[in-house]
Design a protein around this nucleic acid. Structure first.
Lengths: 108, 108
DNA sequence: CAGGATCCGCTACGATACTG
DNA sequence: CAGTATCGTAGCGGATCCTG
């Protein structure tokens, strides 16, 4: 490689990844959903620090980016389940690796 | 696992990772430095979209987090070289994986 | 139960000018 | 060459209240 065009920013895949997963809770949410599908309430209870508004927003963004799937059951009371898409599933090993790296190396 | 304490936020390794690498340019910079050590000017020229102030800030943060090493040569004109630390090197396969995932799956 | 609607502060990001 | 020093801004993240 003579020119390092591969690092030029906007069209680089890595940049897109960062934009998609830059949100403060995105990685945590994806990681949580990688275990198994979850209902809104479950997620909320698992991450009490996130406000409902914020949680909704992040979930919607992940949905728009095709990382998670949102299934609405037409029942009363309402039931909504979030799960990883294929795309999201393909990413979860990376999240797992990031977590391991953090656990092993970030023991301040 | 009966309780999902592993997802509880603040003490989770994944959260720390996100805080460390959440910066808009951090991943790109680490990736660039994973090729080989670079001087400040080289980095700047490779990422003309980053202002000098921003670049300096991000590099300093990466340095504080022990991901990169900053070596100052006492010469005129000044020469400063940035390189990955062992910690940073251990993370670069993950960056590579993120990039590949992006390239393969984000072709909108 | 699973959200939507507002409002708002902070700080991450950036533009510009200057320096050892 | 490799930075600092200031200042300005947008939007992310959050608090709070409301609804199908």
């Amino acid at each position: 490689m003579t020119k390092n065009t591969k690092f030029r920013t906007p069209d680089c895949g890595l940049s897109k990844v960062q934009q998609m997963l830059g949100g403060k809770w995105k990685l945590l949410l994806l990681w949580y959903l990688s275990e198994k599908p979850r209902r809104f309430g479950e997620i909320r209870r698992c991450f009490p620090e996130i406000t409902e508004a914020m949680l909704t927003k992040q979930l919607r963004e992940l949905e728009q980016d095709k990382l998670i799937y949102r299934e609405v059951f037409k029942v009363v009371p309402p039931r909504v389940e979030y799960s990883l898409t294929d795309l999201g599933s393909k990413f979860s090993p990376i999240i797992e690796a990031m977590h391991e790296w953090g656990e092993e190396n970030l023991k301040d």
